[in-house]
């Protein structure tokens, strides 16, 4: 990695207050309830690199995505993109300029396109907002080019979203995201609402566009196979924390954290190697009252006393490469 990465996330945290209203709390003598959706998440993304976050529902991966693009203010930590802090007041002016360079692709292409707008206006919206074109003709030309870029026809600009299938809609979402000429795209489960054959089309398209336009991706997914296909480095999240971050090859060939091992073991195997599977015990605990110490300790096969008391730090495991880090006492002590 170069000395200053393009995107740098440091100690990012987000707490949601999910308590009942004040009066109820007083009457029912209840405490405030805080949901720690994301706790102390740090990672960096180099230019033209794809970093992915995987995790099961409730692990906080979408909350991280929202904080990185600037849709949700963090309660702690910082997001720095190209040297500009996304959330500090001092950088407010620079941030405005930065906005254009960051875009997001959402999961559900049925919910993220306005059904009353024509596709052309949807794609042209960022161009107008950021004042990137001089006149109508230029906007129209630009929209046509974008549609061609994502594999649609320029004539589709005059249609409405309902005239398209799920995969085509996701292409429209990508065209819209690209219309402000961004350098950094955050994709939150971009293919989980799509059928596999369409998913393959979208994943291939996203990789082609990355090569062609030099994009940087933060890719969020629950699907390990998809993430493996897309990302150079992967962070595995569990209950709001990154428990392991490693280069893709390394994570899949030698996962270290017991949760990462468990997750890889649980994926249904298309290769039908008949490999023995360790059955996963238990479920994700309630994030409002997570277990003390390491959040994974109730399900962990290598649990010991220390895991129930101390939260493990994300650190390089013994005998691992410099870019790999695991948050596990057992790994740090070399027991597994």
């Amino acid at each position: 990695m170069t000395d200053s990465p393009f995107v740098e996330v440091k100690g990012l945290s987000r707490v949601f207050d999910v308590s009942k209203p004040w009066l109820n709390r007083v009457l029912e003598q209840e405490e405030r309830k805080l949901l720690r959706a994301v706790t102390d998440v740090s990672f960096a993304i180099g230019k033209r690199e794809t970093v992915a976050l995987v995790g099961e529902s409730g692990s906080g991966k979408s909350t991280v995505a929202k904080m990185v693009v600037g849709l949700l203010p963090p309660t702690g930590g910082s997001v720095t993109i190209d040297g500009v802090d996304m959330w500090s007041i001092a950088d407010a002016e620079k941030r405005q300029a930065l906005r254009r360079r960051i875009q997001m692709i959402f999961q559900d292409p049925y919910a993220s396109l306005n059904p009353r707008w024509r596709v052309g206006s949807i794609i042209a919206d960022p161009i107008r907002t950021f004042g990137l074109a001089k006149d109508r003709a230029e906007i129209e030309h630009e929209v046509g080019e974008l549609l061609r870029l994502v594999g649609l026809d320029p004539a589709d600009a005059s249609k409405y979203p309902h005239e398209f299938s799920g995969g085509q809609r996701q292409r429209i979402c990508i065209a819209r995201a690209l219309s402000s000429k961004p350098e950094f795209l955050v994709a939150d489960e971009p293919t989980s609402a799509l059928d596999v054959s369409v998913q393959a089309q979208i994943l291939n398209l996203m990789r082609e566009l990355q090569d062609r336009l030099g994009l940087t991706y933060l890719f969020i997914s629950h699907n390990l196979a998809v993430v493996r296909h897309m990302a150079a480095r992967i962070g595995v999240m569990y209950l709001g924390r990154v428990v392991e971050i490693a280069p893709t090859q390394e994570l899949f060939s030698a996962p270290r954290h017991p949760y990462a091992r468990m997750l890889l073991d649980a994926v249904p195997d298309l290769a039908m190697t008949g490999r023995p599977r360790k059955m996963v015990e238990g479920e994700i605990p309630n994030p409002i009252s997570p277990p003390p110490g390491c959040a994974f300790n109730p399900r962990c096969p290598a649990v010991m006393d220390r895991c129930r008391r101390e939260v493990p730090e994300l650190e390089a495991a013994p005998k691992a490469s410099a870019t790999q880090a695991t948050a596990c006492h057992a790994v740090a002590e070399g027991r597994i």
Partner: peptide, 24 residues
């Protein structure tokens, strides 16, 4: 065959997924 090729796998090293053009 197309359907199988389009599924990303956690093993193997295919760089590009097979894609079936169009949709159902």
């Amino acid at each position: 065959r197309g359907l199988m090729g389009s599924i990303p796998s956690i093993e193997g090293t295919n760089d590009r997924l097979t894609q079936i053009p169009g949709s159902m």
